[in-house]
Design a binder for these strands. Sequence first.
DNA 1: AATTTTATTGTACAGTTGTTCATTATCTTC
DNA 2: GAAGATAATGAACAACTGTACAATAAAATT
Lengths: 188, 188
Amino acid sequence: MKKDLRIIKTEESLRKALLTLLKTKTLETITISELCRLAQINRGTFYLHYRDVYDVFRHYFEVIVEDFRKAYEKPYLNTNFNINNMTPDMIDIFNHVKKYKAFYQIIFDGKSPMTYYYLVLDTIRKFMEESLSIDNNAVYLDVDFDYLISYHANAIIGIIIELHKQNYTTPIEILNEQLIKLITNTRS
Amino acid sequence: MKKDLRIIKTEESLRKALLTLLKTKTLETITISELCRLAQINRGTFYLHYRDVYDVFRHYFEVIVEDFRKAYEKPYLNTNFNINNMTPDMIDIFNHVKKYKAFYQIIFDGKSPMTYYYLVLDTIRKFMEESLSIDNNAVYLDVDFDYLISYHANAIIGIIIELHKQNYTTPIEILNEQLIKLITNTRS
DNA sequence: AATTTTATTGTACAGTTGTTCATTATCTTC
DNA sequence: GAAGATAATGAACAACTGTACAATAAAATT
């Protein structure tokens, strides 16, 4: 059972139109009506695929999060999940974030919904789970697993939020260094 | 120069009406129109005070964040800003969060805008800044101050996010313990 | 208490939203 | 390639949105 070509065409048109509109205006000011006009899609059809404009963006961002996942994965693979052995050159996430700067500016905008944030958080969390289960010389000190992970995973995003606050100006090499120092200082 | 009584009355009516509506429906489904109907405020007047329904909620939440600030402040005052000497009984934030559970469920909802999150984050950040400037036996290991703070401040919210995920069921005593273990493990 | 300043109201308007339904177009499968 | 399935369209609807402006009401100031 293949996916209907019409569906693919419709959704692609909408996403493409969104990207076009984002060049001249902010996400929250884009209406469903103008998106459909540009995409040449009937407005009634829109609701068969997406809930609102944020939902279209989400579909887009999911692809980017997959790229984030790959970037985040790299040091885990390079160290065979002994993340303590990580070196600055293995880190790829800040490269990724800077590459998709235009998107992350939207993700971290005060008006954007939290959903995008959780997409990133869940991605990091997933890797930490694996890492902590595999990494044998980790010491847990009687801390609940879920809280431990959420604590450290969200800390990582703290760095990205700060990068956002600094308007993405901090050099990647500095960020890589900082990350290493921050997380190695974290485990005993 | 005092504040006009009419303004106070209008804004209070709107906030009160919002609280009433929140008992039966979610924030995102509440329209400006029905809010004004209930508050008996002309819809045109609404726009003189708030941008949208989320903005009214924000005004409300600002009061709650002030309470959060006080709760967060407590261990800092009790330890005279030597936060390493903190004990579980000094911690008040999880008490606070559970008390205002109904609000935090909205704050951390995927559909809610990031603004509320940043209100909390900025509050924590402010205290960490003070704490790190005052606390003399802290070792910084050549980490950029802003990144250090954002990292640790956001980590704290990670715990609250996990509490949210657990549907606010984790006992306060456990949370207090976890927090101590997590942050003492963090500084060298 | 009278005057001035400022906020609220009522009305109107064009545009958006979310939904429904019959009709048409297009894809999949046999 | 024909038949059946499914998606897209167009039109219509009531409700909501954001804004404007003149008229009115209610504050603050003197």
